[in-house]
Every structure is written in structure tokens, then in C-alpha cells.
Nucleic acid binder design. Structure first.
Lengths: 344, 344
DNA sequence: CTGTTAGCGCCTTCAT
DNA sequence: ATGAAGGCGCTAACAG
């Protein structure tokens, strides 16, 4: 089998406890033996079995991540932040996806519980339903998730405010007929964005936006299809389009480009999330920048506080977002580093 | 603490051995007891501790993934395939990144070894250096990795052939001054692509391509910068540009668009990887499609064969790639589903 | 300071 | 068919 602590002990001529003590630096040990142990460890290439450790109720050295999907820039930015923070804390990342499905979510959480020290959860589809959350509410950090009770650790960003600001920007630019392509109905973040859009419209006296609302999804395909059907509908055609997220907006751009609709001349387009591909669309995409990598890093940090028995009082943090104006809404800015003119 | 097998045994009025037998279906058990055990399990919400299991040398139920980065579409497509396959086999995914660094790579492999049943490794920077690979060569599947010895399980795709084909397509279209923006020098996949480019050029009598080769990276930024300096250089300006990957090509597109260079009129551009954002660039991007999600799924499948002690003979698979012609090389095709005209 | 002992949760002989 | 006992690798408590 593998090399165990006993092999090390034998080679160093000490007991296994001494080896353990040296490795965990838990009691003072004679300097000579300490060296012999270290040498033996080095020579044998020993490293303690994590399974045995965690069996003793120690840390597993892994943290879990449950999110809806992995295959989108929004999520991989998040993963990048998580990965970096995890790595620099010598933690492994165990990843599982829910596909926005309640049953998959529950199963993933349950199965993870015993093999990690804590879990970071992104589940915008939970919709305040705290019942889905395992009773061991400690050692959980929620991201972009809306829970009804305030007793959880949550790191959210301002979906409502971002949508509000970007819609307001369009209104201030003179647009009035502003359509929206909505994200998945079961996702709370998408609904917050819709709320933000409506609130901004209402501020300008447009209280009934139902004629402007089109159902979509967080995908390019959905944005493409929704925009096409929007273009085929009866006039008046809207002059601006707020999209569920950047992918959705990219699909919209494509539909508009294909239809020969000038952007932003005939139709301004705005996205949400601020993924970096948004700089490379034609025209470049105005969006709401959400710093998912930083949020990922922060989530790990917060989780470690919980694990280390530091500050245990549940905390709700809200990370600010920023409207980034680019060419798709008529604020063309040349140059590579440009487009980062930031508001809000 | 948590619920253990003893709690179940007590509640069912049997011994722990019986519970174990019922759960693992290892010996026949009296039907009445079996039911009582199952009821107790259900009622208590018991599930065996994975740490205790793996301490006994059983499966851990997790597989490791080591890759250079997580934050790029190429990798997240891969992760999508891995995740799906893992989930449908009730496996957890433990992820770690090497950042193309030998030391990080070694550390990740080492630390993972004991906590997973097998590891899927993508390490194009290994460069045939099999010494970096832990001795326990079984239960390892390499993806997009070039090892010197043939005794490993490898799933590669044809970096050379893809670059060869796409360069050849440009040559057949009449281009002769075809530049290349090269990927990271230490990454073997990037070097294979360069080789493919050179081989195609040589077939058309262009043996010295050194004047056409520009150092780049697998990033938009690098593509942007390399293209800018290429545009500023002395004439003659190349008429086509083969890029290290799609991100790099997206940066090139941006530089060209900003400089007012017509694409593909004055400069044709080709990428590599076939990430889906390539459909949304302006113009849409000709590329070599690599089915990373399918490759991820296949890697899990192969790893499971190894774990299950199925076919243990090392196997090298090569997944075919396909040139996808889009607008950036002058084969403009309208419509959403188009652009999938596939060659090779 | 150090070695011996016991036990984490589970599975697998070994008896019965 | 079933229960009791032992041990996987490790650490904490207990003696010395």
C-alpha cells in the first residue's frame, strides 16, 4: 500500500505519536528526533492520509462549490476567483452543478456535506426557500442567492441596482421605448434585474412595461431568438434593448446585425455581468460589470472565517456593481483600455 | 456528531455488520431485517462517511482534475463535459490548477493522489517530461498532453493537423503572406500548431516562415498587441493571420478593426479551438473546432475503465478536429446555424 | 519530552 | 444468516 506514519516512525526510530507531533507542531519535540523525523518524511515522500485525518473530525482540507453550471464565462470568472483563493489557502475545490434543479441541488449539497469543511453555494433559483438548505447552516456561504431568513452568510451583488442604473442611463439618453429580454423565470437574480428595469421605467412615468417584456434565457441562443421575434412584431419597434445578461445580449447583437439594424443608431443594446468577451463583440457591449472573480475570492475568505471559528455572526454583504459604457449604447470609445469609463 | 452506522443498527435492532451488508448488498440478508434497516436509513437520513470508506481502501467517489487554468472558454467547455459525466456516474470533481507551472503541477498531483480514485490531467506544458508524473501511473488519463513514453493513457486532439488544415485552406484561397501569432513557447500544443502551420507553408514552397512568426500568448491581450506591432512593421503586410487560439484571434480582430483594416478583405484571420464566442465576433471567426466537452466526457469514461479494472492496457486516442469556415477568412455564411460547414 | 492506548466510522474476516 | 472482533491511518489523552 501507501506509505504510512508507521513507516516514518520506524525509519526515524521513534513512535508514531512523535511523528505526528513533529508534523503538526503540537508539542515540543527533541531537536534530534525532530530532524530524523523530517528526514524520514522527506526520504519516503510521506504525506498524511487526508481520509484518516478527517475521520478524526479534523479538517478535510476541501471546500465544496455548488453552482448552476460551469460552462459560462460568468461562472468561470467565479471559479477563477475561488480557485486562486483556495489554492493559496491549500484547499481543494470540489465542484458540483445543480442545473438550476431543486433535486440536483439537494443531492449535491447532501453528498458534499461530509467531505468538505464548508460549502459555497450559488443558487439564484432557490428563491428564498431556506428549507432546501441543510440544517448545518454554519460553514455555508451563499453567493448571488436570495434567502428569506436573515440568518445566513450571503454575498450578493446588486442585480436590482445594476439593472436600474443601466435602464436609467438609456432613459437619460432619450430612449423611451426600451424593451427587455428577460432571464429564466425561476432565477431570482433575473427577476431582480427585471424589477430594476421596471423601477427605472416607472421613474420616467412608464408604468406598464408588459408590451416591452420578452421572455428569454441566459443564453446567446435565447437572445438571438427573442430579438428576431421582437423585430418581426408589429411596430413601433423599441429603440433600446436591455438584456438578461451578456450572452443574451450577444445573441441580440447577432440578430440585429443580421437584420441590418444599426447598433446603436436604430437600436441600443445593453447586457449584464460585464464578462470580458463583451469587449470583443461588434459593437462592443455596454454592460453592468459584476466582479465575479473578486466575489469568488471573498467567498472563500468568508468561509474560512466561519471554519476557523472566527466571526460566526451571519453577515450579508452586497458587492457593488458598475455600469460600463461601451459602443452598443452609443457611447463609442476608441482604444483598447477604454470602455472602462465607469459609472455608479 | 453525525449519524453513524451504529445509530442505524440500533434503530433497526441489528448489528452494524448487517447494516453494512444491506447497504453494500454483499451477502443475503433476512428480508425482514433488510426492510427495517432500509427504513432506519431512510428515517435517520443516514449516509456512510466517505472518509471512513476510503480509509478502508475503498473508492473515495471523487476524481481529480488538474489543468492549467479554469478561466477560459476552452477549459470551461472541458469542465462542462467532465462535470456532466462525473455527475451521471455519481462522482465528485476535485479541481486544481497548475498555471502551467511545473512546481504547482507537481504539488497538485501529489496532494490529490490520496483523495481521489483517479486523475484527469491536462498539461500541455509537460513537454514529454514523464518524470513529472507520479509513479502510480495507473488511474491517470492525460488530455492534450504529450508524453514521451507510450505507456500512458492519453486523449489528444490533432493540434498539428488542425493548424495544417487551416493554413492550407488559406493557401488554397490564394494567400501566400500568412503570418502566425504563436502561443506560449513552453506549451506543447502551441508548438504543434506552429509545426502544422510551417508544414502547410512548406508544402507551398515557403520554407522560411521566420519573418511571419510573431510571439503571442493564449490571450486576447496578446493577440491585440502582437497584431498592432505587426501592423506597424515594415511592409509587406501579410494578407492572412493564423492565431494561437480563438482568444488570441479575438484580440487580433479588435486591433484590425480599430486600425480600419478590412477583414477579411485586407487581412483574413483564423483562430483555433472553436469556442462558441467565435460565432459572435465581428466578423465571425474561422477556427479549428475542438470538441472539448466531448473530450471531457470521454476522459471520465476512460478513467472509469481504469478504475474499474477494466481494460488496463494504455491507450492513446486522438480526437479529430474540424476546420469551421466563417466570415473572418472570406467565406461569409449568413444565418445562425450556418458557419458549421465543416471540413477535414 | 515520549511511548502506549484508545477510538474516529466503516467493512471484513471469523465464528456461530 | 448474523454478531463480535479487528484494523484501515491518524491523533488525543494518558501515563510515565
Amino acid at each position: 500500500m501507501s506509505i504510512t506514519i508507521r513507516d516514518v516512525a520506524r525509519r526515524a526510530g521513534v513512535s508514531t505519536s512523535t511523528v505526528s507531533r513533529v508534523l503538526n507542531d503540537t508539542c515540543p519535540v527533541d531537536e534530534g528526533k525532530r530532524r530524523r523525523v523530517l528526514d524520514a518524511v522527506e526520504h519516503l515522500g510521506y504525506s498524511p492520509d487526508p481520509a484518516a485525518r478527517s475521520l478524526l473530525g479534523k479538517r478535510t482540507g476541501a471546500i465544496g462549490v455548488v453552482l448552476p453550471f460551469v460552462g459560462a464565462e460568468f461562472f468561470s470568472d467565479f471559479l477563477t476567483g475561488l480557485d486562486e483563493a483556495a489554492q493559496s489557502n491549500n484547499l481543494f475545490l470540489i465542484i458540483s452543478t445543480s442545473h438550476r434543479d431543486a433535486e440536483e441541488f439537494r443531492a449535491a449539497m447532501h453528498a458534499m456535506e461530509k467531505r468538505v469543511d464548508g460549502i459555497i453555494v450559488m443558487a439564484p433559483e432557490l428563491n428564498g426557500n431556506a428549507r432546501m438548505v441543510p440544517r448545518s447552516g454554519r460553514r455555508l456561504v451563499f453567493v448571488n442567492t436570495y434567502l428569506r431568513e436573515g440568518s445566513y452568510n450571503v454575498i450578493n451583488f446588486d442585480n436590482f441596482g445594476g439593472a436600474f442604473e443601466i435602464t436609467k442611463h438609456l432613459l437619460e439618453s432619450g430612449h423611451r421605448d426600451i424593451a427587455i429580454i428577460k432571464g429564466p423565470a425561476e432565477a431570482r437574480d433575473a427577476r431582480e434585474r427585471i424589477r430594476g428595469y421596471r423601477a427605472a421605467m416607472a421613474e420616467y412615468g412608464i408604468d406598464d412595461t408588459s408590451g416591452f417584456e420578452h421572455q428569454g434565457e441566459y443564453t446567446q441562443e435565447a437572445g438571438y431568438l427573442a430579438t428576431r421575434s421582437l423585430l418581426m412584431a408589429d411596430p413601433p419597434r423599441p429603440t433600446a434593448l436591455v438584456c438578461a445578461n451578456d450572452y443574451c445580449a450577444m445573441g441580440a447583437l447577432r440578430a440585429l446585425n443580421e437584420a441590418g439594424v444599426a447598433i446603436p443608431g436604430e437600436m441600443a443594446v445593453a447586457g449584464f455581468d460585464g464578462i470580458s468577451s463583451g469587449q470583443y463583440t461588434q459593437p462592443s457591449l455596454t454592460s453592468v460589470k459584476v466582479p465575479m472573480d473578486a466575489i469568488g475570492a471573498r467567498a472563500v475568505e468568508r468561509l474560512l472565517e466561519l471554519i476557523d471559528d472566527g466571526d460566526q455572526t451571519p453577515r450579508q454583504e452586497v458587492v457593488p456593481v458598475a455600469v460600463v459604457l461601451r459602443a452598443s449604447t452609443g457611447t463609442a470609445i476608441p482604444g483598447p483600455r477604454a470602455g472602462s469609463r465607469v459609472r455608479a
